[in-house]
Design a protein around this nucleic acid. Sequence first.
DNA 1: TATGTATGAATGAATG
DNA 2: CATTCATTCATACATA
Lengths: 172, 172
Amino acid sequence: YCDPLMASAGHRITARQRWTPTPVQLQILDQIFDQGTGSPSKQKIKDITLELSQHGQISEMNVYNWFQNRRARSKRKQLGSSSNNAETEQETEVESPNEKKTNLGTLLSQQNPAPRADDLCFQSPEISSELHFLSEMSSPSAYNGDEHLSGKMGMLGSYGVYDQADDYGMAG
Amino acid sequence: YCDPLMASAGHRITARQRWTPTPVQLQILDQIFDQGTGSPSKQKIKDITLELSQHGQISEMNVYNWFQNRRARSKRKQLGSSSNNAETEQETEVESPNEKKTNLGTLLSQQNPAPRADDLCFQSPEISSELHFLSEMSSPSAYNGDEHLSGKMGMLGSYGVYDQADDYGMAG
DNA sequence: TATGTATGAATGAATG
DNA sequence: CATTCATTCATACATA
């Protein structure tokens, strides 16, 4: 995209693109991670953050994200490298990923997505083949379209779809 | 465990991308959220879904999840209270670009041992346009396509400082 | 300068 | 509703 922080403020917010862990910080984090600490508690996060702050600026959010990514990444690596089949890793067979990815590499990024049906990417990718003009296809039963999902919320009808909250809406 | 689609590992079925709210949808959702509607009733969800469906494919579940996440992440706590700098000079000039509603703490700050001009400025975001065709939903990024209409990204662009971690660690 | 990779960060969805 | 997971985006850095 273009201006991340200079938009509203207009001042020099000195945008830090993103936190870059120093080697020391990384070592500490790695060590902690190796200790078997899966999801550090808030207190732990604060502690770690404080410790790491001695070796460079850092926030609790950074630490949290780090662990979060670490776990996710580690798991992903395991699945791909282990004896597990895992044939599809990062296939990314999306319709047209070309234009999407290249917009950041260059110095210019367009916010103006060209109107194209191919780019349709939603919960029901299959419809892309026979998508009309997405006029009345916005039916709430988008998930119902697949039989695979029927087991979850298929027979539920209109509202049973939320298995996580069958009563999320009580008072009107 | 519910296997949505990815579990089958059928590389043919492709992977269904998660719902990506269009700028318009996001604006509407944001607006509704700002109205103070905490937990929209089922009827409300239906209504919203119907409204949003005019701007792209969406299901009630998407709306429901959105509000759930919104509420959860909106609570963004100031965890950065402990994060202090030690040997590095921290600039407190960081300010809040705006104050829509998700203006979390001003603890964003990182990058330490690399004094360099972080002045990134590309172009004006005015290039964004709202396609009334069938492209509104095919936004390649849907991030800050329209920064002016949504304060979501308006605060700091992609870096929402805090957004996913309001209480990451439980009791420990 | 352009491309590829590693990884921090954002977010929709799932689970408890 | 709180927390965690999984996926994707975007950027820092290495490389040609």
